[in-house]
Design a protein around this nucleic acid. Structure first.
Lengths: 166, 166
DNA sequence: AAATACCCGACTGGTTTACTCGGCTATATA
DNA sequence: TATATAGCCGAGTAAACCAGTCGGGTATTT
C-alpha cells in the first residue's frame, strides 16, 4: 500500500476540475498554477486519468480537460487507482500466498485494513467534496490569488510593451 | 503514507513473539524460520522495536526477545510506527502547509483518512490477534512445520555422523 | 573454549517518485 | 494561412527507499 504525492495530486486536480466545471474545459496550465503542481507531471497523471475514462480532453486553444462523468459518479478510490497507487494493504494481493506459499499470520489484518480504507475512499465522491465548506473556502482563496496573479501578468506585459516603445 | 513488507514483517514478528511468549525469550532465528523472514532484516527491525521500548532482549545462548509490555498493551499502530512507516496520509504531517504554504484543497480528506486508519490500527492489540481463530490456526500449522523441520535436521545430523564413522 | 544469539554499521541492486526536457499533433483565431 | 494554444508522448534523471546481504563485533551459557 502506498499513498504519495502522486495520488494526492490526482485527487486535487480532479477536484479542481469539478470546482471549475462550469467554465468549460480546464487547461492543465490553470490547474498547475492554482494547485502548485508541475505542469509536465500533471500531463503524466492526466494521461492515466484519461486512459481510465475519468476525464476527456479537448485539444487546441481554449481546450483542456473535462470530467467524463458526473461529480457524484467519481469517487476518490477510483482516482487513486487510476494513477496506479494501490490501496491494498496485503502483500499477496488477497491471494493468501504471503508466507512461503501459504497464508501469513497477519493476513486477515491487512485484508481488514484494505477493506477499511477502500470503503472509506469509495464512499467519497467529487460531489461530496465540492459541497464541503472547507473545500469551498480554499477554492475561493485559490481563485482569488489566480485572478490577482493574472492581473499582475497583464500589468507586467503592458509595462514591457511601454518599455519597448521607448 | 506507506505500508510495505517492513511494517508487515514487524507486526508478524511481534505476533509470533506474543504467540510463543510462554516459551521464554524467542530467538530471531526461530521467528526467521517460522515466518520466512530474513534473519538480518529481522535484526534491523528489532533494533528499532527495542529502541521504541516494545521488546526487551536477552543475550547469549537461550536468549532472544520478549515483549516489553502485556499483549493487550501493544497495538498494531505502535509497531508500524516503531519501524518508521507512517500511517499519516497527509503530505504536510498535519501542518496545513501543503500547497504553497497554505492548506491544500484536499487537506481535510487526507486528515480524515489518517484518522480512519490510525483509529483502526490503534484499536487492535496483540492480545486481540492472539485470540483470533484464524491466527491460531496459522500458528498451529507453522509450529507443526517448524517441529518437523527440526526433526529432519536432527536426522540429517545423525546421518552425517554415521557417514563420518564409515 | 566454544557455541549461541544479540548488536551494529556499511553496502547494494532494484524500484519508485517527482520531476524536467524536447518535440509532436490538433485546433481555434487573426 | 500563419501563429499561438494546449493536449500528447517518450526519454531521462536525482534522490529516496526497500529488502536484503555481509562482516564483524559483544554478552552469556554450557
Amino acid at each position: 500500500m502506498r499513498l504519495t504525492t502522486k495520488g494526492r495530486y490526482a485527487v486535487t486536480a480532479m477536484l479542481d476540475l469539478a470546482l471549475h466545471a462550469e467554465r468549460g474545459p480546464i487547461s492543465l496550465a490553470d490547474i498547475s498554477k492554482r494547485q502548485d503542481i508541475s505542469l509536465s507531471y500533471l500531463e503524466q497523471l492526466f494521461s492515466r486519468l484519461r486512459q481510465s475514462g475519468l476525464v476527456s480532453s479537448v485539444r487546441g486553444p481554449g481546450g483542456g480537460y473535462r470530467l467524463a462523468r458526473a461529480n457524484a459518479d467519481i469517487c476518490v478510490a477510483e482516482i487513486i487507482d487510476a494513477v496506479n497507487e494501490s490501496v491494498d494493504a496485503t502483500s499477496c494481493g488477497g491471494n493468501s500466498d504471503c508466507s512461503a506459499g501459504e497464508q501469513c499470520l497477519t493476513h486477515y489484518l491487512w485484508t481488514d485494513l484494505s477493506r477499511q480504507i477502500h470503503g472509506f475512499l469509495n464512499g467519497i465522491s467529487l460531489a461530496d467534496m465540492v459541497e464541503r465548506a472547507d473545500v469551498q473556502e480554499v477554492a475561493r482563496r485559490q481563485d482569488g490569488r489566480a485572478a490577482s496573479d493574472a492581473l499582475d501578468q497583464v500589468v507586467e506585459q503592458k509595462v514591457a510593451i511601454i518599455g519597448g516603445l521607448q
